[in-house]
Amino acid sequence: MSRSLDKILFELEQVAQGHSSGLASTIDPRARTLVAIIFLFGLLSISLNDIGRIAIWALPLIFLALLCRVNYLSLLSRSLIVLPFVALIGLFDILHEREVVATLLGIRITQGWIMALAIMLRAIISVQAILLLILSTGINPICRALQGLGLPSLFVLQLMMVYRFLIIMIRQLQELMRAADSRSAAKSHYPLSLWAHLVGELLLRAVGRAKVINQAMKARLWDGRVPIFNDKSCWRWRETIFMILSITGIALMRYINLK
């Protein structure tokens, strides 16, 4: 368990600032976020029967991962997290749609299998798009971008606070679990009574920390108002060109059928 917490801490630190290298890093985060949203809308609008057309949408992600110097294989492995729940929904299609649509090497392929595979493929590609955005941009620039796109500043502040305290909370959790594991053979999951003690203790520590932070903020004359990012970056020609090129590419993938 503590090894998986280490891995989570590593991943959190990885996305703290994002990969600042690569050509794409010079583009404003607002433009990148907008393009990611348009990409996802384009992907979702493709019929689940068109599995080939859905697969093509992975190609620009591989290209962008190279451009942003993000390891595509790690992106792929991290995107598999989404599979269990999606596979459950896909299973319903396999059970219900039993009409045979093709035969491959003597194996009858049903409509349900095509739909299930299309859902899983669409899920993996959409998750990769989000991961690529966050890994190439970083959490703080994304929050700034979301505020620039109209998200209320209080919610942006909340996102940044949760993110900041998350690392502290996970370290606290590691301490608690190390203590629990040293007193019982380290288990992957705990009996309910011990679990309640661990979570309750974590909650008390969290509230204690919140009180200290509140006092520190008041000591710095914080009056309850939410600070607004003093973002000097402005929308330049390169962002406009990036948007036009990306939207053209997405439209081509969406509307041109190579069959």
């Binding site: 993110y163 969290a206 919140a210």
Partner: peptide, 25 residues
Amino acid sequence: RLSIPLMGVLGAFVFAAQMINFAIP
């Protein structure tokens, strides 16, 4: 009384608490 720090820390708490699993008897 604005409880922003409490909400921030409790958000992080929920996030962290979801990483501890309990055994379902």
